[in-house]
Amino acid sequence: MTTHKSLPTDLIDSLLADYKKPEDLIGENGLLKQLTKALVERALQAEITEHLGHDKHETVTNPTGNARNGKSHKTLKGEFGELPIEIPRDREGSFEPRMISKHQTCWAGFDDKILSLYARGMTVREIQQHLTEMYGAEVSPTLISTVTDGVMDEVKQWQSRPLDSVYPVIYLDCIHAKVRDAGSVRAKAIYLAISINMEGHKEILGLWIAQTEGAKFWLSVVTELKNRGVQDILYRLH
């Protein structure tokens, strides 16, 4: 993977105009929106699967013949600004979303958990613990298991998706988030690879979780980006 550092200073300044620390790229109007939307909508799809007793393309097995019936739309407000999401519906109108209730409009306090869920290195048990905390105590183990399966599918697809061969700019940075580990909450390092692609849009290429920040781990991050298709970087910020 080749890295060039010959971009004009004024172009770099323009690209980094809103960037002072990693949180600026994932906070209000930042990239956290992408992850939150995908994870919440995947969790809601898992919820309606658990409610109906069958997946989207499976045979209807519940006694009343209830099935999916399109989607409704809602806008959530959080630290990232406003986020439009799609909520699945059923024919009988009996589905009650749990992660996002029908009249809920605010979403706050889950930024660390969203980032952690997408970070490579989380165990199934850690994912289940995160989801349990997000849902609260009043949900069944069956629901948590179903949502975990759905979320893991979403996360694995996102983690392993092919990347572009060329990126004008890639940021390599690290933040620290609180993660429940072995029954206690610990601060862990979340490695970020964030890019500006050829269309000028910011994109999270990957997230990785580790106990601490270190040079050896950064080498493994760069190696994975190369294995997923990145061949050339015009400017790398670390």
Rank of each mutant, 00 (worst) to 15 (best):
V60G: 02
Q231D: 14
C174I: 15
G150P: 06
R186I: 14
L192Y: 04
R120W: 09
V222P: 01
V222G: 03
E47A: 03
G93S: 10
I48Q: 01
D153F: 12
Y19V: 15
M134P: 00
Q34C: 08
K202S: 06
L32N: 04
V40T: 11
F95Q: 01
V139E: 03
M1R: 05
Y19I: 13
H54N: 08
S145A: 15
R180D: 02
K5L: 11
L76N: 00
I170H: 02
L76G: 02
Q45H: 07
I170P: 00
T61R: 03
L35Q: 06
Q157D: 12
E96M: 06
Y167S: 08
Q159V: 02
P97Y: 06
G65E: 10
M198E: 12
T146R: 12
S140N: 08
P8T: 04
V230N: 01
T61D: 03
M1K: 07
L207N: 00
E23I: 15
A177T: 08
G30T: 04
G200I: 04
K33L: 11
G136M: 07
D90R: 11
I233Q: 00
K71G: 05
E199S: 14
N66K: 05
P97N: 08
H51P: 08
V124G: 09
A193Q: 03
T3C: 09
H51F: 14
M1H: 04
L7P: 01
T146D: 08
A137V: 10
R91N: 07
A38S: 14
D149W: 11
W208N: 00
G78P: 05
G206S: 09
W107R: 05
E154G: 07
T2I: 14
